[in-house]
Write a protein that binds this DNA or RNA. Structure first.
Lengths: 231, 231
DNA sequence: CGGAAAATTGATAATTGTCAATCGTCGTGG
DNA sequence: CCACGACGATTGACAATTATCAATTTTCCG
């Protein structure tokens, strides 16, 4: 997996190992961070899938983005105090745990790592921009197509799939809450993509069958990213 | 305006003055940064209103967020290369111009400023999260109410209004493109808010009349923010 | 094998979008 | 000062998309 990320210098490795408090393994469905809470920790995803979401008081839920290896969990909360969103594991996950309180040390003593942190935050912002465009302006079918290739390409980039392809471990409820659609309409929309042979409902998730076609349906150029940091 | 922001140390001020290349004043409607472009500059908003947006090839436009004094313009592009969104002035704006190439110096030599940068990026992410929740899960009326108080509170916090209240300088087309609605439906929705006496269409923009009621309609707690950095 | 959770479906209701005018306001040129 | 245009706001009618309801199937697991 790591060949996708930038190499570390020795002092960085030394620091990271002291900054690191340990590893955490969680089951699918575990809530890692909860909205309204202040966590003493900050995490890096080592393995598995997770997602960030917000809810309205009456229960309506919006999934904001998905998390995969290399993503930071809880940076917002670390910088700004209380969490304004929750994070839940979609599959079993392995996380690297850091101490929130020591975040500032990174800035003062390891500027390259600080730069990486900001880079990662910026990348998250970029994904949110794309998701906003999607929910705001794409039709249901376009949104679904976009979401599935988007997740597929991201997952492939961090080697989350065993082979060249693989299964995206989400239920239709997750898709619905990501796309801002009802679950019934989501089902009908995904079904349409399946009928056209672009995706397949497999085991406990979706499999992408025709990457190119999905990108066309979703009016999306694809997920381009060069070397990236991994903290 | 500046009492809202954190104070600087002298060395920071000295650095900022060398990092700063000059100021830029633009008319309403000017495109400051364009999607697909690489800018040699990075900006800080000193005065005025602007907005970030993305478009699909067929012209559908989604406004991602609005920019007000203290916001950074173009950080994403500075960190990641090509701009993936455009930025346009909504009103006449004053911008402080920085050299993109020297961004790294901030990280190596002015860690507090670097921290501030990341803080600002994180805050932007938080706003995007809220906007996503809005577009994905709120009804048209809720979205409109949320957007108007949101802009109202942000603008008030940075003293963009002359008195205690003021006018938000947006057209209904802007509102529509922010909320992900058609312009006709946006008009009918805003009209409903106006009939209830929550907002008023004035001169060339909207004025908030009943902040509390808007927050209730929009199921929103309000915009809380303590001290914040200003670069 | 029994249940529970997730996926499907068909029918019907709301919400939101599209079309096609019309109305107003404001700045410009005559 | 007034007519002309342009852009933005408004409206009403009608169409399309998406949501809600209410069952049924499937699939997964113990």
């Amino acid at each position: 997996m790591l060949d996708h990320f930038r190499p570390f210098t020795q002092p960085e490795l030394d620091f990271v190992s002291t900054f690191k408090m340990g590893e955490l393994a969680v089951e699918a469905g575990t809530t890692i961070l909860a909205e309204g809470t202040r966590s003493a920790h900050l995490y890096t995803v080592l393995d598995g899938w997770g997602f960030r979401y917000k809810m309205l008081e009456d229960g309506r839920r919006q999934i904001l983005n998905f998390m995969m290896p290399g993503d930071l969990v809880g940076l917002q909360g670390s910088l700004m105090g209380e969490m304004q969103h929750s994070v839940e594991a979609l599959s079993p996950m392995a996380l690297c745990v850091f101490e929130r309180a020591r975040l500032h040390e990174i800035f003062t003593n390891y500027s390259d790592l600080a730069y990486d942190l900001t880079w990662i935050a910026s990348r998250e912002e970029r994904m949110l921009d794309e998701n906003l465009l999607s929910i705001g302006r794409r039709t249901a079918l376009e949104r679904a197509a976009y979401l599935l290739v988007f997740l597929f390409q991201r997952a492939r980039a961090v080697k989350l799939f065993a082979g060249p392809s693989g299964i995206i471990p989400i239920t239709q409820q997750h898709v619905a809450d990501t796309l801002g659609l009802s679950i019934v309409h989501t089902n009908k929309t995904l079904r349409k993509l399946a009928q056209r042979g672009l995706v397949r409902w497999a085991d406990r998730g979706y499999e992408v069958l025709d990457e190119q076609a999905l990108m066309e349906v979703g009016h999306w150029d694809g997920y381009k990213e060069k070397r990236r940091p991994f903290i």
